[in-house]
């Protein structure tokens, strides 16, 4: 019998993958301003394999499924994005457990993913990375859920926070990643990874049932 809540995991991963593939050019153009312009390309090369192998991915439980995704992303996405996004899936897998996945479990998985990204990238909020969209969005999600909102409206509200936070990275100085090499030149443009997270949240809000 399938793990309860597994369909939610599938929806999140599928939406992330489709978003990465659909926005390859857009994400690369954003990255070209301050980084080396390969972010969209790299991300799409990994997530397109997730989509191509979608039906064959091991679905024994959420942890196994997410570990398979982690291996694909880590080994097929080039540069530092592969290990960072791969670690996010790996840590989420480790936090998934084998019981029903509800709001509390989903938040624990997101928190584990954030911790993994911070450790692997030796970075934190304020360094002008995807964390600057992901962390405020997850904080918001937790707040809305705690306040009793349903999943669909909580995700929609979190997506708005993700968008505002991602746009807010424009004024930041990049301290990590390839963009850090460009120093002051990074000010004035948003971080491609943060925008990527925001677009993924927005697509998820549109796709969430209810």
């Amino acid at each position: 019998m399938a793990q309860e809540g597994f369909d939610g995991i599938e929806l999140v991963v599928r939406t992330m993958a489709q978003t990465a593939v659909d926005n390859e050019t857009y994400f690369s153009e954003l990255d070209a301003v301050v980084g080396d312009g390969d972010f969209g390309y790299s991300l799409a090369r990994g997530f397109e394999i997730v989509l191509a192998t979608w039906d064959d991915l091991d679905r024994s439980d959420a942890a196994t499924f997410l570990r398979k995704v982690a291996v694909i992303i880590t080994s097929r996405v080039g540069g530092t994005s592969g290990p960072l996004w791969g670690t996010a899936f790996m840590r989420a897998a480790a936090a998934a457990g084998s019981d029903r996945i509800g709001a509390a479990e989903a938040l624990a998985m997101l928190r584990a993913a954030i911790t993994g990204i911070k450790e692997r990238g030796q970075s934190d909020v304020g360094d002008k990375t995807l964390l600057d969209a992901l962390v405020p969005a997850v904080d918001a999600l937790e707040g809305y859920l705690a306040a009793g909102q349903g999943a669909a409206s909580a995700v929609t509200a979190a997506a708005k926070v993700a968008r505002a936070s991602a746009e807010g990275t424009s004024s930041m100085l990049a301290k990590r990643g390839r963009a850090a090499y460009t120093g002051e030149r990074s000010i004035g443009s948003p971080d491609a990874g943060a925008i990527g997270v925001a677009v993924m949240f927005e697509q998820l809000a549109g796709a969430w049932p209810g």
């Binding site: 570990r67 670690t87 790996m90 897998a93």
Partner: peptide, 9 residues
């Protein structure tokens, strides 16, 4: 690091 984490899992 990542290979180890995956293998330990």
């Amino acid at each position: 690091d990542m290979g180890r984490e995956m293998a330990e899992a």
